[in-house]
Amino acid sequence: MSEAEFGRGTRARLHIVTGKGGTGKTTAATALALALAAEGGRVLLVEVEGRQGIAGLLGRPPLPPEERELIALPGGGRVCVLAADAEAALLEYLAMFYGMGRAGRALTRLGVVDFATTVAPGLRDVLLTGKATEAARRRAGDRRGTGGASAAFHYDAVVMDAPPTGRIGPFLNVNSEVAGLARVGPVRSHADKVMDVIRSERTLVHFVTLLEEMPVQECKDGIAEIEGLGLHAGSVFVNMVRPPLLGEDDLATAADGGFDGAALVPGLAAAGLADVPGLAAALSGEVRSHALRAGLERRTREDLAAVGRPVVDLPYVEGGVAWPALERLADALKRQGTVR
């Protein structure tokens, strides 16, 4: 990708957020979009799986397949959201490049969309990734991204809430999927252009994980796969991080089972609680599982450090993530230098 087409500098313009299912990709992607917009820029957040996860997170009704400005930050920053949809993208693409409004609708009636999703999943993926890459390249006052290279970018950054790690390689490597089918023609050159953006150093693939063995393993495998494809891995976002409630020594003792609750008895008695022995026994069980969990988190964190990517923590939010918590998560990302 030439500088003229995708801008100068080293700051990433397209952020692709993946991770094992259930790790909080949508939350992390939304927090990242907010963090990127915090300095006053315009950021597009793109969803590609048709789950309406961003709408759910923001407490909004389902979003249409078009770019909508949903969040205006106090510092002038704006976050637009696009719930990308392969069918809408295909029709828009045909209308934009071929003026095929009517014929495009005819294609839908003919089952071209069924075709795209059933027989050629690669075409579907290129349409969805194409929406994000087109937005990342778009210049002011231009929908095609082919305008003058001197014009400012329409979006300062684009964040994609991408498919899970198990599917991310084939999803991003659209070229190899499409190449076997469309050897020439505009779809092929569209795929080539999409791939240029995805391969650019200014596109980063971030991985969301929890401090558990399977998500960490998938994260490591995913980074290896992405780098093997010649793409650029960004940060590892560790989601739902809780500060340990006990000191190192106490954690070690509790994890080894060398803690039977007797140590709690004087304290619980001093607090004037009833049924101190029963309570001490119950609480010691909770302390032990907390300690075991802390040990697992320590081990998996060491495992992650060995990957050599920046590791960024997103704090655990009690009671589920909603608007005020999203701002806190965005602050955490800013503090840790994710958006520099």
Partner: peptide
């Protein structure tokens, strides 16, 4: 003196919520 008990109680409160 009772830091451990206090931590265990906070942990319990979190678990209950």
């Amino acid at each position: 003196d009772h830091a451990l008990a206090a931590a265990a109680l906070r942990l319990h409160a979190e678990r209950v919520r």
